[in-house]
Structure formats: C-alpha cells, structure tokens
C-alpha cells in the first residue's frame, strides 16, 4: 500500500518534470544536432554556435540585451531602493495602498504594459534603444522593491537608532548599519531585474524602434523567415544564462548558516 503510494508520488513528480523540461531538453539537443531536420539526429556539432557568434545581427542583439539588462537593473535597483526606504517609513494604511499599486505592474498583462508604455514614451521621444531602456527600468522597479522591502521589515530599526545614538548622522548610519543588513536584498533585486529584462519580449517588442533588437525580438523576427538551428543555439544560451542568474539569486537570498558555529 505504502509502496504504491510512494510510486505514484514519484511518478507524478516525474511527469511534471517531463512536461516542464522536455521541451527545453529538445531545444538543447537540437542546438547540437548537425542535421537541420527537427526529427533526425545527424551527429554532434558546435557549428550553430559558431554561426551564431559570427552573425553581426546576433552579436548586435546580444549587446543590446546585455546593456539593457545591466543598465535597467542598475537604475531600477537605485530607484527601487529609494522607494523601499520611503515605503518602509509609511504608516500601515498608506503602506498597503502603495504596495498594492506597486504590485499592479507585475500582475498586469505584459501586452497592456507594453502598449501603454509605447503610447506614453512615444509622446516624448522617438522609439529606439532609450525607449526600451526606460520601459525596462519601469517594469523592473516592482521586482526590486519586492526583494528589498522584506529586508527592511525584518530589520530592527533600533540598530539604526543605536547608530544615531552613538553619534552617526542619518546618512552615515544608513550606510554603516542599515545597508549591510539589506545588501542581500539589493543584490537579489538587481539580479532578478536583470533576469526579467533579459526574458522580456512583449514590452520590448512594443517599445522598440525599427532596427533595434534584443535577442528575444530578433529571434522572433528570424522565425518569421523560417527557423534556423542557430536560433536553437541562441535560445539554449539564453536559457543557460537565466538558470545561472536564478541560482545566483537563490544563493544570495538563502539564509547563511556558515560562520555561526565557527570554532575559535
């Protein structure tokens, strides 16, 4: 009886894993397949990776993606940090109002956000690289806040007061006492923002100008012309980077166990 239950448990998990990861496994395998066919295995090759890295379109899109990811994450982190400081200082009622408002962009359909941003940004500047950057910064801010705010809530305000009490001004106290406590949240927020920016297609698609591409919009464009194995290679790489970033975030946010029981 127990064994049967056990079996079904494992079977269930296996099925879930299969549905979740089988497509990606197929993608990864295809990216190393020397045959252009989607069903036949023609032997192992790195040719598609080579082709991809030699393509100026791909390299241009890659550069855009990286600059956007790092840049938007950077600015979103600064704005998000300042916002968190403000939100943390609010009273309970204001706090919950502001929090629900900041959460809307995350729950909102990307297409709505994308079209809305396009309409807004188009009024002030031509669509191009900067407009994507603005859009990415904007939709990244809530993710940063989501990572930083809990740190503020956990933090004991009395350590800040203690620093003031010992003669440090508000700014010094913040940098010496508060920041070290919330830095894991800041780093996690930064990486999550990077991931979000790299993953985004819809919002980028609506806010980009002609000729400017990120990896995701470029792949979309290429697919319209007929799918190439280089795209498999590219997608595999994007997947690998995303996984790496997620692991990094988890490592940062995980509670640290080491150090506590160090013998002296």
């Amino acid at each position: 009886m127990v064994k049967l239950k056990d079996f079904f448990c494992k079977f269930y998990v296996a099925i879930i894993m299969l549905f979740l990861y089988a497509p990606i496994m197929v993608l990864i395998v295809s990216s190393f397949n020397s045959s252009k066919s989607r069903v036949l295995w023609g032997g192992f090759t790195l040719e598609w990776y080579q082709q991809m890295l030699n393509s100026s379109i791909v390299i241009g899109a890659l550069r855009n993606t990286v600059v956007l990811a790092v840049g938007s994450a950077f600015f979103a982190t600064i704005i998000g940090l300042l916002a968190s400081i403000g939100i943390d200082a609010m009273r309970k009622k204001e706090f919950s109002i502001v929090m629900s408002i900041t959460n809307i962009p995350m729950l909102n359909a990307d297409i709505v956000t994308g079209i809305a941003m396009m309409l807004l940004i188009f009024r002030f500047m031509p669509l191009g690289f900067s407009s994507i950057m603005l859009a990415h910064i904007t939709f990244n801010i809530p993710y940063v806040i989501l990572n930083i705010l809990p740190r503020f809530n956990q933090m004991d305000i009395s350590t800040y007061e203690a620093a003031r009490d010992l003669g440090a001004g508000p700014v010094t106290s913040f940098f010496k006492v508060v920041l070290p406590d919330i830095i894991p949240g800041i780093v996690a927020g930064f990486f999550m923002a990077m991931t979000m920016s790299m993953d985004d297609f819809v919002i980028t698609y609506f806010t980009k100008g002609a000729g400017v591409n990120t990896l995701s919009t470029m792949i979309y464009g290429q697919i319209k012309k007929g799918i190439q194995p280089t795209m498999y290679a590219l997608s595999t790489m994007i997947f690998a980077v995303t996984i790496l970033l997620l692991i990094t975030i988890n490592l940062i946010t995980l509670p640290k166990k080491s150090g506590k029981n160090k013998p002296r």
Binding site: E161, A162, D165, A168, G169, V177
Partner: peptide, 20 residues
C-alpha cells in the same frame, strides 16, 4: 537637537548590537 549631537547614550531593550 538631533540624537547624534546629544551627550546622551542609550542601552536599548533589545540590545540593538550591529550584527555584521
């Protein structure tokens, strides 16, 4: 007068030591 300029120091109920 702001806290940091007073010749007064506080021992807080929850100690408030700087953990890092």
């Amino acid at each position: 007068l702001p806290t940091e300029q007073r010749c007064v120091n506080t021992v807080f109920q929850k100690y408030a030591l700087f953990p890092h």
